[in-house]
Nucleic acid binder design. Structure first.
Length: 491
RNA sequence: GGGUUGGUAGCUCAAUGGUAGAGCAGCGCCCUUUUAAGGCGUUGGUUGUGGGUUCGAGUCCCACCCAACCCA
C-alpha cells in the first residue's frame, strides 16, 4: 500500500476532511476557483489595523482565523504575520452569490476582501466587506483557536501550524529576523562587508568538530560541509580585505540537544589591524544596539510558561572584563598554588565530577564551566585564557602560557569568542599539526601557504546567532529559535 | 548512550483494572455590531506500535517507535 492510498483511506475515514472536500466542490460548482490567483491589496491586515482610519476604501487578504456568526451577519478575523483585522460581512452589503460562497468557507481559508473601514459599537477597527474573493481553501482543520499547538512534536515538525496558531512563537521568529537584519546593518554601517565562502570544503577546518561528508560526482572527490568559515575568511585578509564578515550556516555532525542543532547560524567577523580588545568593544556595542533596537532596552527578562519573570539579564555597559585566572582565584584563592592532585581532590570535595577530564587544564576548565560560566547571567568577558583551550589565537606577549582572547559569557552560556588572530605561519602550522592529530584530519596546506604570503594582524569574532537570539528572546531551547529544527523521522 | 516524564477525538485536556468523556473546532437550528460571541441540539475514538497478564487493560508487565527534560 502506498502513501497516496493511505491518504485516500484517511480522507474517507475522516468526517472533517470530507466536509471540507465537499465545500471545495461546492465552490467549484458555483464557478469559483477555490485556489484563487493574484489579489491586489492596499495593505496587510495588521498594517491596516495599525494605521487605522475610518471611512477608507481598502483591500486586504489573509487567512480566516476566527468566525463569529450572528445569523444574517458575520464577523471574521483575517490574519497573517503582520497581525489581524476584523471583517464584517452582511447580506445587505454583499451580493447573494458572495454570501452563498461564504457559506462554503472555513477557518483556515485565505480570503481577499474589499470594503470600507469603520469602527464597531465595541470599538473594534473593522472592514465592511463590499466584495470578497476566495484565495485558497484549507482542506485540513487548524489547531485550537485558543490554546494553539501545545504538542512540541507538532510545533517542531509542522512549524507552519505553530506560526499560524501561536502568537509567541511567531514573535520570537520575527525578533530573530530583525536581529539578523540589524546585525548586517550594524556591521555595514561600520564599513564591514559581507562575503560568501565555501560551505563545501575539501578540508573541513577552523574548528575541532565532526563534519558531514558528501561527494562530488563529476570531480570524483569527497567534500565536507563546513564546520566553520574561518580559514577562508583569513584567506580574504591575505587578499587585501580589511573588514569582512560572513553570516551563515555551519554544520557539525554531533549530538542534538537543547543547545545544539546540526546546522546552526554563525557570524564571523574579521578586522585587520584590530586586536581582541577592540573586537570585545565591537561585540559589546553590537549586542547593546540589538537589545535597545529590538528588545526595548538593556534589561532582558526571561519568563516561564505562566508569564512570571524567572531571570533578568542586565546588559548595561561597560561589561565586566576579567582574566580567566582571576575568576578561578575568586572561586578558590589557592587554586593556582595547588598541585594537579590537590585540584582533583578539591573538585571531589565540592561535588564536581572530573573523572572524565584527562589533563590538568581540563580539570580547571571544568571548574570554570560549572562554577563560573553556568552561573554568569550578565555579560562577562573572560580574557587571557590558557593557550591549550584556544589553539588558533595569538599568544600573549607578556605571558606565553596565555592567549590574547576573550570568551563572552551571557545567560550561563558562551555566546562569542574573540581573538587576536594568529598570523605567524610557522606557529600556525605547528599548532594545526598538533591539533589535527593524525589520519582523520588533513592539514590545509593552501591555508598555510596563504599565511606565508602574509596575513595582517587582525581581530576576529564568532557569534552563535541561535544562542544570541535565545538570550535576547528568553527562550530555553535552540529549537525555539530555529524554524525547522532537525528531528528524527516520525517512524 | 543512561535516567525521568509523556503519547487518548482535528486541537487542548479528563478518565481507582470495570460502559472512553469535556471544552474548542465541525455539523443542524435560532440570532443584523460580535470578538475565546451566545442559546438549543448533534457527529466524531484501532487510547503511539506489537506482544503479554486478567473474566475484563487507556490504566498493570515486556519490547519497540516518537517527543520533552535531566545526566554523560
Amino acid at each position: 500500500m502506498d502513501a497516496a492510498t493511505d491518504r485516500m483511506e484517511e480522507k474517507s475515514h475522516n468526517e472533517l476532511l470530507a466536509i471540507r472536500r465537499q465545500k471545495l466542490e461546492a465552490l467549484r460548482s458555483a464557478g469559483i476557483d477555490p485556489f484563487g490567483s493574484g489579489f491586489e491589496t492596499t495593505g496587510a491586515p495588521g498594517e491596516i489595523r495599525a494605521a487605522f482610519a475610518e471611512g477608507q476604501k481598502v483591500r486586504t487578504a489573509g487567512r480566516i482565523t476566527a468566525h463569529r456568526n450572528m445569523g444574517k451577519s458575520h464577523f471574521i478575523d483575517l490574519s497573517d504575520h503582520s497581525g489581524r483585522i476584523q471583517v464584517y460581512l452582511n447580506a445587505k452589503e454583499l451580493a447573494p452569490e458572495a454570501m452563498a460562497a461564504f457559506d462554503h468557507l472555513d477557518i483556515g481559508d485565505f480570503l481577499g476582501v474589499e470594503g470600507e473601514t469603520f469602527v464597531t459599537k465595541t470599538g473594534e477597527p473593522s472592514i465592511k466587506a463590499a466584495s470578497i474573493r476566495v484565495l485558497s481553501k484549507s482542506l485540513r482543520p487548524l489547531p485550537d483557536k485558543w490554546h494553539g499547538v501545545q504538542d512540541t512534536e507538532i510545533k517542531y515538525r509542522q512549524r507552519y501550524l505553530d506560526l499560524v496558531s501561536n502568537r509567541e512563537s511567531l514573535e520570537v521568529f520575527q525578533k530573530r529576523i530583525a536581529i539578523v537584519r540589524e546585525i548586517r546593518r550594524f556591521l555595514e554601517d561600520r564599513g564591514f562587508i559581507e562575503v560568501e565562502t565555501p560551505m563545501m570544503q575539501a578540508i573541513p577546518g577552523g574548528a575541532a568538530a565532526q563534519p558531514f561528508e558528501t561527494h562530488h560526482n563529476a570531480l570524483g572527490m569527497d567534500l565536507y560541509l563546513r564546520i566553520a568559515p574561518e580559514l577562508y575568511l583569513k584567506r580574504l585578509l591575505v587578499g587585501g580585505f580589511t573588514k569582512i564578515f560572513e553570516l551563515n550556516r555551519n554544520f557539525r555532525n554531533e549530538g542534538i540537544s537543547r543547545r545544539h542543532n546540526p546546522e546552526f547560524t554563525m557570524l564571523e567577523t574579521y578586522w585587520a589591524y584590530a586586536d581582541f580588545e577592540k573586537m570585545a568593544d565591537l561585540v559589546e556595542e553590537m549586542v547593546c544596539h540589538l537589545a535597545e533596537k529590538i528588545c526595548g532596552g538593556l534589561r532582558i527578562e526571561h519568563k516561564n510558561a505562566e508569564g512570571n519573570v524567572t531571570r533578568t539579564i542586565d546588559l548595561s555597559r561597560p561589561w565586566r572584563r576579567t582574566r580567566y585566572e582571576d575568576l578561578l582565584r575568586g572561586v578558590e584563592p589557592k587554586w593556582y598554588d595547588f598541585s594537579p592532585e590537590e585540584r582533583r581532590a578539591w573538585c571531589q570535595e565540592h561535588g564536581i565530577d572530573v573523572t572524565h577530564c584527562q589533563a590538568d587544564f581540563e580539570v580547571t576548565q571544568h571548574v570554570f564551566e560549572k562554577l563560573i560560566e553556568e552561573k554568569t547571567m550578565d555579560p562577562l568577558f573572560v580574557t587571557h585564557c590558557p593557550k591549550e583551550l584556544v589553539p588558533l589565537a595569538k599568544q600573549n606577549a607578556a605571558d606565553p602560557r596565555l592567549v590574547d582572547v576573550y570568551e563572552l559569557v551571557i545567560n550561563g552560556q558562551e555566546i562569542s569568542p574573540g581573538y587576536s588572530e594568529l598570523n605567524d605561519p610557522d606557529i600556525q602550522r605547528e599548532r594545526l599539526e598538533h591539533q589535527s592529530g593524525g589520519e582523520t584530519q588533513k592539514l590545509d596546506d593552501d591555508f598555510l601557504a596563504a599565511l606565508e604570503y602574509g596575513m595582517p594582524p587582525a581581530g576576529g569574532i564568532g557569534i552563535g546567532i541561535d544562542r544570541l537570539v535565545m538570550m535576547l528572546t528568553g527562550v530555553e531551547s535552540i529549537r525555539d529559535v530555529i524554524l525547522f529544527p532537525h528531528m528524527r523521522p516520525r517512524h
